[in-house]
């Protein structure tokens, strides 16, 4: 069991994800530099938060062309579990593995706070150990987390139960209160909140542990 953690120039939560997986949960990890193409032996891949390539042009727009992501797309297409956190979520939408886009927060603030959320696991393998409509709290830390999609696109996501994480008291203006969504198959999850920052009793809540521990099956 090894989890790959993609490292772009500008990623800054890669070591947090490693600490959560290895230090808190005892799950081995391997860093994947953005130019790498070898995903051999990996059981899951995490795209961490940060500012990939400086978030130039748009968040995640340049990262989308990183060589490692071609392999991540093949990995996801084969059913491999892929998790995009914050900037990783933005990259997944730019890449087209998840629909919609993340735009500037409604009130312009960079939000850094504990955030109440509601989970509806649907088909999402990453969230299978959470109850339907379970209330949890995870930290958020983003300036561009306002999920945007046209009404028809949102309706399709709702029909397929792909909106798996919603804000209570929507902090950023996301349509449908979307905080996280998965693909139809359920193996790709993108979310703005940081589960890796809610795994260590030393730093507060533990609501992120079950999400990351789901890779253990």
């Amino acid at each position: 069991m090894t989890v790959g953690i993609v490292v772009f120039p500008g990623s800054n939560c890669d070591r947090d994800v490693r600490w959560a997986l290895e230090g808190c949960l005892g799950i081995p990890t391997r860093f994947l530099w953005h130019e790498e193409r070898d995903l051999g032996g990996l059981d899951a891949v995490v795209l961490p938060g940060g500012f990939s390539y400086g978030d130039y042009l748009r968040c995640g727009a340049i990262a989308r062309f990183a060589p490692v992501l071609e392999e991540v797309c093949s990995f996801a297409a084969a059913g491999g579990p892929v998790l995009g956190i914050c900037n990783g979520f933005q990259v997944l939408t730019e890449l087209g593995l998840l629909p919609g886009a993340l735009t500037r927060n409604r009130d312009l603030h960079f939000l850094c706070q504990p955030q109440p959320l509601r989970v509806s696991p649907g088909p999402c393998t990453w969230l299978r150990s959470y109850g339907d409509e379970e209330a949890i709290t995870l930290p958020i830390a983003h300036g561009e987390g306002r999920f945007q999609i046209d009404p028809q696109g949102l309706a399709e996501l709702e029909d397929r139960h792909q909106v798996v994480l919603r804000y209570g008291d929507n902090p950023n203006g996301s349509v449908g209160d979307v905080a996280g969504l998965c693909n139809a198959r359920g193996n790709v999850l993108g979310l703005m909140p940081h589960p890796e920052r809610a795994c260590d009793p030393a730093t507060g809540g533990l609501d992120g542990r079950r999400l990351l521990a789901s890779v253990l099956g």
Binding site: L57, A101, Q148, I149
Partner: peptide
């Protein structure tokens, strides 16, 4: 393909 994101 690069400069604009057609979603937004």
């Amino acid at each position: 393909r690069l400069l604009a994101n057609p979603v937004i």
